[in-house]
Design a protein around this nucleic acid. Structure first.
Lengths: 196, 196
DNA sequence: GTCTATATACCGATAGAC
DNA sequence: GTCTATCGGTATATAGAC
C-alpha cells in the first residue's frame, strides 16, 4: 500500500492523513488506520500515545505540505495578480476538499488547542502571504489603493475554502470554479495599472 | 429543555438539529440525541426508521430555516448592493459555523444522495437568489456590466462559507468579518452608478 | 517493535412488555 | 407511544507474549 522503505510510524501517519482528509477526526478510528497501514494495535500504541497524538503528527505533516504547495505557487513568477490567479486556479482535487480547512468542522479538533494550532497557523500564514502580495499589487497600481490587503487576503482564502463547500454540496467542481472566476473578475487589475 | 407543548417527535428533531450543527452526522449518536430530547430508544425508533431518517428530518428543517432567514434579508429594502451587504453583515454566531454548509464535510452525508439533497438545494437556491440581485445591480449600473452574476453569487456564498472556516480555525470571528469586508470593498458600486 | 488477547464503553438497531 | 432489555459490532486503550 505504501513504498517498501517506509517505516511503520510513517505508514501510520500517512494512513491517518488520508483518513482525516476523507472522514475527519471524529470519523476516523484507530482500527481503520491500522488496517490501511497494515499494522497492528501494538505498533500504533508503541509509536504514539493514542489517537490524538497520532492525529497531531498527521495534521502537522499535512499542514506543512499545504504550506509548501501554496508557497510554490505564490513565490512563483508573474505580477501579484498573476500569482494570486495561479494560486486560485492551481490544480485541485476539488471534491476532496481542503485537508486542513475541513478539520475546522471537527468538534474534537476545535476543542483541542493542540490539534487546532497547526490548522490555525497554516491558514494564518496563507492569509499573511496573500496580504503581502496584495500590498505589492497596490504599490504597483494594479489594485485600487483603497483596498485593505489583509481583508482581501481573507476574502481570497475564504473563497477557496467556501468553494469546496459549494462543490461538495453539489457534487461537482463547477461551483468552486465559478467562485474563483467571480473573485478574479472583481480583482482584475485596474486599467490605470502601472506597467512594470 | 424544550417547551412543554412540543411533541416527542419534534423534540427528537430539534435535539438532532443541534447536535448535527455542533458535531456533524458522524459525531452524533442516537444516545446523545435521546439524552438531549429526554426520550428513550423506543420513541426514536417509533417515530423514525433510524438515525439517517431522523437526520433527514432534522436537515430538512434546518435547510428550510436557513432559506427563510436568508430570504428575509435578501427580499428586504435597499439597492442590490445594500441587500447583499445586509446578507453578508447580518448577525451570525460565526464560531458555530453554518448548520447547512458544515454538513458537506460529513462523509456519510455526502455519500447519501438523500441527505445531501437538502444541502445542495439550499445552497443552490441561495446562489440563484444572489445571482438575480447581482443581475439587478448590473442593470442599474451599480455593478460593472462585464461581471458574471452567477460567478459573483458563487463568490459571495463561498466567502461566507469559507469565512466560517477561517473563524473557527483562529477561534475568533475576526477573519470572517475581514473576508466580508474585503468582498464588499471589491463589490462596492462604481462611481458611474445610476442613482435610482 | 510487533503481535494477539482482553477490557470497558458505546454504536445503531431490535424485541417485546406496558 | 414509550419504556427497558438485549444484541452483535465497534471505539479506544491496556497487557503481556514473542
Amino acid at each position: 500500500m505504501y513504498s517498501e522503505d517506509m517505516s511503520t510510524s510513517d505508514r501510520l501517519i500517512e494512513s491517518t492523513r488520508e483518513l482525516l482528509w476523507e472522514r475527519g477526526y471524529v470519523g476516523t478510528s484507530p482500527k481503520a488506520i491500522l488496517e490501511r497501514a497494515g499494522a497492528g494495535q501494538g505498533s500504533m500504541y508503541h509509536h504514539f500515545k493514542g489517537k490524538p497524538d497520532l492525529a497531531l503528527a498527521a495534521i502537522r505533516r499535512t499542514a506543512e505540505e499545504m504550506r509548501a504547495t501554496a508557497a510554490g505557487v505564490l513565490d512563483g513568477p508573474g505580477t501579484p495578480y498573476e500569482r494570486i490567479e495561479a494560486y486560485l486556479r492551481r490544480e485541485r482535487d476539488v471534491l476532496r476538499g481542503c485537508p486542513v480547512g475541513r478539520l475546522t468542522m471537527d468538534p474534537d479538533v476545535i476543542a483541542s488547542d493542540e490539534l487546532r494550532a497547526p490548522v490555525d497557523e497554516t491558514l494564518d500564514w496563507l492569509r499573511q502571504r496573500l496580504a503581502g502580495i496584495v500590498e505589492e499589487g497596490k504599490e504597483q497600481g494594479l489594485f485600487a489603493a483603497g483596498l485593505d490587503a489583509e481583508s482581501i487576503a481573507a476574502t481570497i482564502v475564504a473563497t477557496v475554502q467556501g468553494g469546496y463547500v459549494l462543490a461538495r454540496a453539489s457534487g461537482s467542481p463547477a461551483a468552486f470554479d465559478a467562485g474563483v472566476r467571480g473573485l478574479l473578475s472583481l480583482l482584475a487589475p485596474r486599467d490605470n495599472a502601472r506597467t512594470t
